[in-house]
Amino acid sequence: MIKNRKHKNVNKIPDGKRNPFVTPAGYFEKLPASISEKILKGENRQPGKIKAVYRIMLAAASVAILLLLGFLFMKNKSIQNTDIFAELSDREIIAEKTDLLSYLSEDDLIKLLVMKSDSPDDLRLLKEENYLILNDEQITDEVIIDYILTDDLNQNIYF
């Protein structure tokens, strides 16, 4: 073998196709047995049992994820509601509340107004405007809602 000689053409490499790699002694005699052993190991594994364990783990993980997502969703929702109310003006909050008030009877609404308007000024104003007359048939839902939505009063009404 000529060493350190440059060869431009691969076909001219001396013994270019000679195999310079080495395997452990008797490797190819033992290889079929190693392959059979590997196949046997694979066949002896209990795929059913492994699959059952995986299925239980998967179910447990799914439940845990769902619970976590539910918790995060609820937490986020309550934070969002607080944030929304913080950003709303009194008028907007009252406007929303009036939807609820529409379910109340006329008498109950007037009672509620009197109970909530604890400022003497408000009471005076209510009297002056003749709104604080219980059982007055002229006081309709519409009139009461208009009254609730009046800016001046809104400041003192707390629901």
Binding site: M1, K3, N4, I13, D15, R18, P20, V22
Partner: peptide
Amino acid sequence: DNWFKGEDIEGRFY
């Protein structure tokens, strides 16, 4: 050397 018994030129070839 345990796994490759090639000459220098064979080493460079690989």
